[in-house]
């Protein structure tokens, strides 16, 4: 199972349309979940709308929350989206094997057995979550909390039987500031998350779409990462 989780506090304002980028991820079999980190959780801002649209196109979930509820929201979303994916897989199997339309309609004993299988899959399936964190100027003050929330999420993931890893990208990054930069390669090591954003300089614009595509490529391992010293500026300053 592979997912992208985007954390942002506002609107993209350059590069590719992020909704289209999320749709691309979905067509490649990667769901995109989005958490909007907003000061006003219930506001009808443009940012909140974009957050919802990206997740809808990416086949995932979205929530707009205050940064103090970020950790709790990340954990809830991960648990629910993993459960949802497994449910879809199991539902498909049931339909193929039994021609059963919906698992809700199964008799109690069969339901009990199906849930047992789902619980088992939920614990043992491999899981990779690529985090994409908006580090534009307006996010600067929140990055510490984001780092703590990521550490807390990893604590949940690493307890699973199935191999579970995260990687972390941030944006804007790169020499032109129009893409994403890798902060942390696939890992389940808590220590690696300690100083995650220490060297990140918050800056510039918000190229959410471009960043999403870059992370998608990474998750699909479609493109080999440019060598650290080959393309100076694009990666070197971000690889820890």
């Amino acid at each position: 199972m592979k997912q992208i989780l985007l954390l942002t506090d506002g609107c993209s304002n350059c590069g590719m349309n992020p909704v289209a980028a999320a749709a691309q991820a979905y067509s490649d079999g990667i769901t995109v979940n989005v958490i909007g980190i907003l000061d006003d959780e219930h506001g009808e801002s443009e940012g909140a709308r974009e957050v919802a649209e990206i997740a809808a196109a990416g086949g995932g979930m979205s929530r707009n929350v205050h940064v103090r509820r970020l950790s709790q929201t990340m954990q809830m979303m991960t648990q629910q989206t993993v459960a949802h994916t497994i449910q879809q897989v199991v539902n498909r199997q049931l339909q193929q094997v039994f021609g059963q339309p919906q698992m809700e309609q199964l008799a109690p004993q069969k339901k009990a057995a199906v849930v047992q299988v789902m619980d088992e899959l939920q614990e043992t399936s491999g899981l990779r979550i690529a985090l994409l964190v908006d580090s534009s100027l307006s996010m600067k003050a929140k990055l510490k909390t984001v780092q703590e929330a990521i550490a807390d999420l990893l604590l949940n993931l690493r307890a699973r039987r199935g191999k579970s890893e995260i990687c972390v990208f941030h944006f804007p990054a790169g020499s032109d500031g129009q893409g994403a930069g890798l902060l942390l390669d696939w890992t389940s090591d808590l220590a690696a998350v300690q100083r995650l954003f220490a060297d990140v300089q918050s800056r510039g614009v918000t190229p959410t779409g471009n960043a999403l595509l870059q992370v998608l490529d990474y998750v699909l391992a479609r493109r080999v990462q440019p060598a650290v010293n080959e393309e100076r500026g694009l990666w070197s300053e971000y690889v820890v």
Binding site: E104, A112, V115, Q116, M118, D119
Partner: peptide
């Protein structure tokens, strides 16, 4: 959330 409840019932049984 019947799956969540069913999972609780499974353990209890």
């Amino acid at each position: 959330e019947w799956q969540v409840l069913q999972s609780e019932i499974n353990v209890l049984q």
